[in-house]
């Protein structure tokens, strides 16, 4: 069976992770991508979580969230949130940051708080957790959105939970965010997006069976696509094997998986 779009997204995200780096990984699919990367090409990554756990090898059990303390089994450090968010992330010691972005706009602003008016939301979502810190402070920020529905890519989010470039890169810089922070990449089931110097998202790479017009129709604004956009290589057999093993493991751990 060929890879589903979701499986290809996981492979693409895992490939973005370079061996030997220090990673700050947010909950959900970013955790799974880092786990897949560790099993494939990046065994020497060091993962830090917001609660202060440092994980430098594969945990026997896939945690349901960073606070599922099977994540702490065999940890080299169990510290706290001030350590994780400021001593490690804010200080610039973390080289890559991976954050789930289920609703994300033109400038990479992420909403995990409320759809509709804040005081009378149509859909109330969980809120920030440490997501705001990941996007405010993290270097080489990679966003992950498992949806390719237009609802997940409005031109402007109703609530900025995790700031991207706000109204543009100039605004982010003026407000006092550090240089080198802000989203660089977005991984989704269609391919990869990047952000230009003004902080605007554009389509940079697509999976082979996805036409540019189809990809563009998933976004709530006229998204730019590079003339010579990259076509992503299909997952290799060993990549797909690891992805499927980990998805089976995730299911045993009560993860709700997208339908194929």
């Amino acid at each position: 069976m060929s890879a589903t779009r979701f499986e290809r997204m996981l492979v693409t995200g895992a490939r973005c992770i370079a061996d030997g780096e220090v990673l700050f990984v947010g909950f959900h699919w970013p955790m799974l991508m880092a786990r897949i990367a560790r099993r494939l090409h990046a065994p020497n990554i060091v993962i830090v979580y917001e609660n202060g756990i440092v994980e430098d090898r594969l945990t026997p059990t896939f945690p349901t969230s960073p606070c599922d303390l099977v994540a702490a089994e065999g940890a080299t450090v169990c510290a706290g949130s001030l350590d994780a968010l400021y001593m490690w992330l804010g200080s610039g010691r973390v080289q890559m940051t991976v954050l789930e972005a289920p609703i994300v706009d033109r400038y990479g602003n992420v909403n995990t708080t409320a759809v509709g008016p804040y005081s009378k939301p149509k859909v109330r979502l969980p809120g920030s957790g440490g997501g705001t810190e990941l996007s405010s402070l993290g270097r080489n920020l990679t966003l992950v959105n498992a949806s390719s529905s237009k609802r997940s890519y409005p031109e402007r989010v109703d609530y900025v939970t995790s700031p991207g470039y706000l109204g543009g890169a100039e605004e982010r810089a003026r407000l006092g965010y550090k240089p080198g922070t802000g989203p660089r990449t977005l991984v989704n089931p269609l391919g990869l997006c990047k952000f230009d110097e003004r902080g605007e998202m554009y389509l940079a790479a697509l999976h082979p069976d996805i036409a540019p017009e189809e990809a563009k129709a998933s976004f709530g604004w006229p998204i730019r696509i590079e003339g010579g956009y990259e076509v992503l290589p299909a997952p290799a057999a060993d990549e797909l094997k690891v992805v499927r093993e980990e998805l089976a493991h995730a299911k045993e751990r009560y993860y709700l998986l997208p339908e194929a």
Binding site: F27, H28, T64, S65, C67, D68, T112, V123, R124, L125, P126, G127, S128, G129, G130, Y254, Y255, L256
Partner: peptide, 16 residues
């Protein structure tokens, strides 16, 4: 800073 049921994850339905 957030309210949810982190297994699944599924929403915190009463909160919603």
């Amino acid at each position: 800073c957030h309210v949810w049921n982190s297994v699944g994850p599924v929403p915190a339905h009463c909160f919603r």
